[in-house]
Amino acid sequence: MSAIKRRSFLGAIALTPLMSFQSVWAQGTTLKISHQFPGGTIKEGDFRDRLCHMFAAEVDRRTKGGLKFKIYPGSSLMKTNAQFSAMRKGALDMSLLALSYAGGEVPEANIGLMPGLVTSYEQGYSWKNAEVGKELSRILLDKGIVVVSWIWQAGGVASRTKAIIDPADAKGMKIRGGSREMDLILKEAGAAVVTLPSNEIYAAMQTGAVDAALTSSTSLISFRLEEVSKSVTTGRSKAYWFMFEPLLISRAIFDNLSKEHQAAIMAAGADLEQFARQAAQQDDVAVAEIYKKAGANVVDLDDASVKKWQTIARATAWKDYAAKNANCANLLKLAEKLL
């Protein structure tokens, strides 16, 4: 009996001791999808939660009910930073997660939030079929993770005070970066870095523990940061960082599925990438509208500003990342081919 079916079988027996063997199997398999973002529906809310609902419905349809899903938004199943490790162990089935959160456990993962390395959606989405994407997928597979949907998001900066456009603007401020590499460029710019997941930014800004925070456009909206911000730097025109935030499945779980169910998962995941890209770009624009309505100062980046951040990144974050191990050095080299 496979690990998944064994888990479903034992759970069902524990709940209803008299249930027959046949009726347990008739229920099919239900997988859990965990993420940190606000919950919604298949039609409304944070597009990352919507994508999970769309994925669940599509795989259910393709497998004729053989695979079903239960979605746990808002870190309601487990803490954000525990999800990657749990998937590696087979204790969590799936997650839509910023890959950089896994950087402490798998250093290679930090390439998913490397400042200055991805500067457009076209470039980011080209990774999947390029050498860098294939190598990253291989490394993650070796670590027990399967990439189901490639999702990239541009990011901005919400600030309680002044707008952060050039590196000089960050000096003396307490800023949440989101990854080791982002923290390195912020430190070089003279900021004091604060480490916390995006779903904790609001409280930190509200209390003054954080002056500003870098996060995706969608998170700038979903976590209502306009309520605690006086300025925002958007990613709608230019951006010096893009976040890789894929839909992932535990290899231990995936390998125990039938070939037909595996194919349904991967096909549905690929089909949703276009939706994710369009939704992310729409949020890049929506950020400006929402923050302006809230009375915040809205600014955009230009090529000169992006170049300043990229120059710092090359000398700090890129150098530090490449020195981690041979895999990191190779991934960086392959990614630079797409610049």
Rank of each mutant, 00 (worst) to 15 (best):
A268G: 05
L301F: 04
D271S: 14
I175C: 08
Q262F: 11
L257P: 06
V210D: 02
D283H: 05
A213S: 09
G172K: 11
R236S: 07
V299G: 02
G269K: 11
A168I: 10
A268F: 06
N256C: 14
L257G: 03
T234C: 05
Q262H: 11
R236W: 10
A294W: 01
I185C: 01
L257A: 03
V228S: 00
V298T: 02
S198Q: 12
I253M: 04
S179C: 07
K293L: 05
M173S: 13
A286I: 12
P197T: 05
E273G: 13
Q274A: 15
M173Y: 03
N199Y: 15
K308D: 05
M266G: 04
K308H: 04
I265R: 02
A192G: 06
T215G: 06
K171M: 07
D283W: 01
K293V: 09
F223W: 11
T218V: 13
A264W: 04
Q206R: 09
K238W: 15
H261R: 13
E273V: 14
E289A: 15
V306P: 08
P246T: 10
F244W: 14
D169I: 08
A203V: 06
K308N: 08
R224H: 14
S219P: 05
Q281N: 03
F244E: 03
R224I: 14
G295S: 02
T195P: 04
I265E: 09
A268R: 00
P167H: 07
Y202Q: 03
Q282F: 05
R277T: 07
D302C: 13
L225I: 09
K293R: 14
V306G: 05
S229I: 03
F242N: 00
Q310Y: 07
E227Q: 11
A168V: 15
Q206P: 00
E226G: 10
V285C: 10
K308A: 10
E227A: 08
N199C: 10
F275I: 11
M243G: 14
K259H: 10
I175Q: 07
K307M: 12
G190S: 02
L301C: 06
K259W: 07
E188C: 08
D169P: 06
A286C: 10
R224T: 15
Q278G: 13
G235L: 07
A212C: 12
E273R: 14
Y202F: 13
Q281C: 13
S231V: 01
S219E: 15
K187I: 10
E245K: 06
I221P: 01
E289D: 13
L257D: 01
S305V: 02
R176P: 07
L225C: 11
A268S: 15
F254E: 09
A288S: 14
G295Y: 02
A286K: 15
S229Y: 00
S198K: 11
E181W: 11
T233C: 02
T195Q: 15
T195K: 12
W309T: 00
A170G: 13
D183S: 06
